[in-house]
C-alpha cells in the first residue's frame, strides 16, 4: 500500500489537482480504514483457523461499510452492515458448523494450488493497480459540493422511481433462490427412513474417511 501511495504521490505531483501529499481528513480516514480492511481481508484468506477466517471477514466487510460512509453512500453502508455482517457471515458460520469444520488450526486449509494462486493474484494486482493508477491519478471526487449523494432519501427515491422494475425482478430472483436453497438442503425422506441418521453418519464417516485418506 505504501508503494502504491508513493506511486500515487509521484503521479499527483505532476497533475494540477489537489495533490496526494496534502490529503484531506476524509482521505486520511479512508486510507486508514482501507489499510485495516485490506489487512483483515488478507488475514481472512490466509488464516488456518476456519472460524477465524469468518470473523476476519466480518472486520473486512465492516471496513467496507465504513468506506461507503466515507464516500457518502449512507444507505448502502447500512445495507452492507445488515446483509453482509448480519446475515451472510452468520450464514457462513452456520455452514462451517454444519460441515463440521474443525475448530482450531487446520493444516490443510490451503490447497496445493497455493503458489499458482499467489502468482496469479500478485500479477493481477500489479497489472490492475498500474492501469487504475495510470488512469485515475488526477481524478477528484468532490464530496462536499452539491446535493447529497447516497442518503436514504435519495436512494429510496431513485430506487422506487427509476429502478422499480429491476427491483421487482430481483425479488422474484430472491424467491427462486429461497426455494432452490430449500430444495437443495432438504433431506431425502422418501428414500430411506434413516435420513436423520444419515447426516450424523456422514459426519462420523467423514472422520473415518479423513483418516483413511491419510493412510492412503
Amino acid at each position: 500500500m505504501s508503494a502504491t501511495a508513493n506511486l500515487a504521490a509521484s503521479a499527483a505531483a505532476v497533475s494540477g489537482t489537489p495533490g496526494f501529499l496534502s490529503p484531506t481528513g476524509v482521505e486520511i480516514l479512508f486510507l486508514l480504514v482501507g489499510l485495516l480492511t485490506l489487512g483483515a481481508a488478507i488475514t481472512a484468506v490466509t488464516t488456518r483457523q476456519l472460524v477465524h477466517a469468518a470473523l476476519w471477514l466480518v472486520v473486512a466487510l465492516g471496513g467496507i461499510a465504513v468506506e461507503y460512509l466515507l464516500l457518502s453512500a449512507e444507505f448502502i453502508a447500512w445495507v452492507q452492515v445488515l446483509i453482509y455482517v448480519g446475515a451472510v457471515v452468520v450464514l457462513l458460520l452456520f455452514g462451517l458448523m454444519l460441515t463440521r469444520a474443525p475448530i482450531g488450526r487446520s493444516p490443510d486449509a490451503d490447497s496445493g494450488n497455493r503458489p499458482v494462486a499467489l502468482a496469479v493474484a500478485v500479477t493481477a494486482a500489479a497489472v490492475l493497480v498500474t492501469v487504475v493508477v495510470d488512469a485515475f491519478r488526477t481524478t477528484w471526487i468532490d464530496l462536499e459540493d452539491g446535493a447529497p449523494q447516497g442518503t436514504t432519501d435519495v436512494t429510496g427515491r431513485i430506487l422506487f422511481q427509476h429502478w422499480v422494475l429491476p427491483f421487482e425482478a430481483l425479488s422474484v430472483l430472491l424467491l427462486a433462490a429461497l426455494v432452490g436453497a430449500i430444495v437443495l438442503s432438504r433431506r431425502e425422506n422418501g428414500r430411506n427412513g434413516t435420513g436423520g441418521d444419515g447426516d450424523g453418519d456422514g459426519g462420523t464417516g467423514s472422520g473415518t474417511r479423513a483418516a483413511g485418506g491419510g493412510e492412503r
Partner: peptide, 24 residues
Amino acid sequence: MHLAYPAVLAVLLFCTGLYGVLAR
C-alpha cells in the same frame, strides 16, 4: 477525495479475494 484511493483499494481487495478463491 482522489478516486484512486477507492479504486486501488477495490483492486487490492479483489485480488485478495482472487487469491482466496484459488488457494483455499
